[in-house]
Computed example of a mutant assay.
Amino acid sequence: MTSEVVLTPVLTGLGGTVLVLGGARSGKSRYAEALINAMPAPWIYVATAHAGDDEMAQRIDKHRADRKDGWRTVEERFDLPGVLDRAGTAPVLVDCLTLWLTNLILDDRDIAAASEGLMEALVRRAAPTVLVGNEVGLGLTPETPLGRRFRDEAGLLHQRIARDAGQVVFLAAGLPLRLK
């Protein structure tokens, strides 16, 4: 896959942040990895998923096996700001924001404080950061209050990051559409 998005080598604010959005199986993770792979290794892959069952464990194993050498995986369900701060100058891929948000909601964490912490960490970063998120606001209105809260929180988080990110890309059917 050829990438039309180039990561900014000199970073100010969130200029080196790329937000990659799309639906399930849209190709967003593969696209995000290609962006990071275009930079010198080592790279850091921040995995926010939790293997709560065998099927999810198999998905995680497949993601790991598909990544080429040079990746260091950090599994973190809650403290994204801490991981970003400790990453130094290594390019970082966070996959994904919506699973991170799910973890926060299900653990009854303060979403506003966590989101603010993430934004502050992104501003402090002196290296490229690619954030992957599921665009969940294009479908039906969720049936439950928890589902509606999740959809709303995800939309607000993506808007906040997109406003300040250097680049935003939306994927559908494996095809990237540069939004910003």
Rank of each mutant, 00 (worst) to 15 (best):
H158T: 03
M119D: 13
R124T: 07
F170W: 05
P142D: 13
L106C: 06
L138T: 06
L97K: 05
V123W: 07
L156I: 11
V83S: 09
T98R: 03
S3Q: 13
V10L: 04
G82R: 13
G117S: 05
Y31W: 11
L7A: 06
L118M: 06
H50R: 15
A41P: 15
L93Y: 03
R86Y: 00
A121S: 12
A154Y: 01
E55K: 10
R149P: 00
V92L: 10
T17E: 06
G133Y: 04
M56N: 09
V6Q: 12
L131Q: 10
D53G: 06
V94Q: 07
T102K: 10
F170Q: 07
G52Q: 07
P9L: 10
M56K: 09
L99G: 03
Y45H: 14
A34V: 00
E4N: 13
P9W: 05
V123I: 14
Q159R: 14
L171R: 06
V92W: 08
I36C: 02
G70P: 01
L84D: 11
D54L: 04
A162V: 05
G166E: 11
A112I: 03
E33I: 00
G23M: 02
R25I: 00
L101F: 02
V74D: 09
R148W: 13
P91G: 10
F78K: 07
A173P: 01
K62C: 03
R30T: 07
L11K: 12
R151G: 01
N103A: 08
R151W: 03
L101Q: 12
A114N: 09
P42K: 08
A87N: 09
K62G: 02
W100D: 11
V169S: 03
W43G: 05
E153T: 00
T141K: 13
G23E: 02
P40V: 01
W100P: 11
L140E: 11
A154W: 00
F150C: 12
L131F: 03
V123K: 14
L122A: 10
L84Q: 10
L106V: 04
A49Q: 14
V46Y: 07
A65K: 12
K180A: 06
A41C: 02
P91W: 04
L97F: 01
Q159E: 13
M56A: 08
L93E: 03
M119A: 14
W43Q: 04
D69L: 08
V168R: 02
E33W: 03
L131A: 12
G52P: 00
G27L: 02
V130H: 15
L99E: 04
R86S: 13
R163N: 09
Q167E: 14
G155E: 08
A34K: 13
T2Q: 07
L35N: 09
M56P: 04
L99Y: 03
A49K: 09
A113F: 02
L19F: 05
A38M: 02
D95Q: 11
F78A: 07
A112E: 14
A47C: 14
K62V: 01
K180S: 02
H158P: 06
R72S: 13
A57R: 15
T141L: 15
D108A: 13
R149D: 12
G23L: 01
V136H: 11
I161A: 01
R64S: 08
P81M: 08
V18C: 15
A121H: 06
R72M: 09
A65H: 08
G23A: 00
L104I: 00
E33T: 02
L101I: 02
V46H: 07
P142T: 14
